[in-house]
Computed example of a mutant assay.
Amino acid sequence: MAILRYNPWAEMTTLQRQIDRVFDDLQVQTFKTPAAELTETEDALHLKLELPGVSAQDVDIEVTESAVKVIAERKLEHKEGTRSEFYYGKFQRVIPFKAKIQNTKVTADYKDGILNLTLPKSEQEKNKVVKVNLEIPAA
């Protein structure tokens, strides 16, 4: 019977590789969803999405009265032998709105990897008045 010497560093190295793999998976997941910024004014919602490395023809935008869905694809362009941490492939983002919008009057601008959408609010939302009743406490 052979005597094997215990090496705790080998187990630590294996554990370190497993932890690195978990964080690598989490990092790839975060790049699949583009970052967004939503600003609301009296007349419209303004949405910005970061889509670096995506050409305008690879972006598809679907707008309803209550949400916007952006589908985009970053196409694979690295060469053989290149190590890359970029995420390539299709991804999408659905952003719901609290206010109803006029989806037929949405305007879009795409420059330097930033998608800007102007989503005008519906007339009902602009003119929405809520009546508040005050209850008078009994004396």
Rank of each mutant, 00 (worst) to 15 (best):
E85C: 00
Q27V: 04
M12N: 05
E42A: 08
E65G: 14
D112F: 12
A108S: 15
M1Q: 12
S84D: 11
S84K: 07
V132A: 08
A56E: 14
L26V: 07
A36N: 07
V106R: 10
Q124F: 11
I136W: 12
F91H: 10
G81A: 05
A67P: 00
M1N: 11
L45R: 02
K32Y: 06
R17P: 00
K79S: 06
K75G: 01
T104M: 03
V28I: 13
A67N: 05
R5V: 15
E50T: 12
T30H: 11
F23R: 08
I61R: 02
I95Y: 15
Y88I: 07
K90P: 08
T41C: 02
V132L: 15
E85A: 06
A10D: 13
R83C: 01
S55H: 05
K126H: 06
D109E: 09
L76A: 05
D58S: 05
V22F: 13
A99K: 13
A10E: 15
S84V: 15
Q18T: 10
Q29A: 14
Q29L: 14
E125W: 10
A67C: 00
N116K: 15
S66H: 06
K128M: 10
T41H: 04
T107C: 04
V70G: 02
F31H: 08
Q102D: 15
K128V: 05
G53Y: 04
Q102N: 15
P120D: 04
D25T: 09
E73I: 06
I114M: 09
I95A: 01
K128W: 05
I101C: 02
Q18Y: 08
Y110M: 11
F97K: 07
A36F: 09
T33C: 01
L26P: 00
E125C: 04
V68I: 12
S55L: 06
K105H: 12
I3T: 13
E11C: 03
D43A: 03
Q102R: 09
D60Q: 12
F91Y: 14
F23K: 06
N7V: 15
D58K: 03
T107F: 06
T107N: 11
G89T: 03
V63Y: 03
V94H: 10
E73W: 01
I101W: 13
V94T: 12
K90C: 02
A10P: 00
V59Y: 01
K111H: 11
V132W: 14
E123L: 13
D58Y: 09
Y6K: 07
T82P: 00
T14N: 05
L115K: 11
I71L: 08
Q124Y: 12
L117R: 12
S84C: 12
Q124H: 10
E85N: 11
A72S: 11
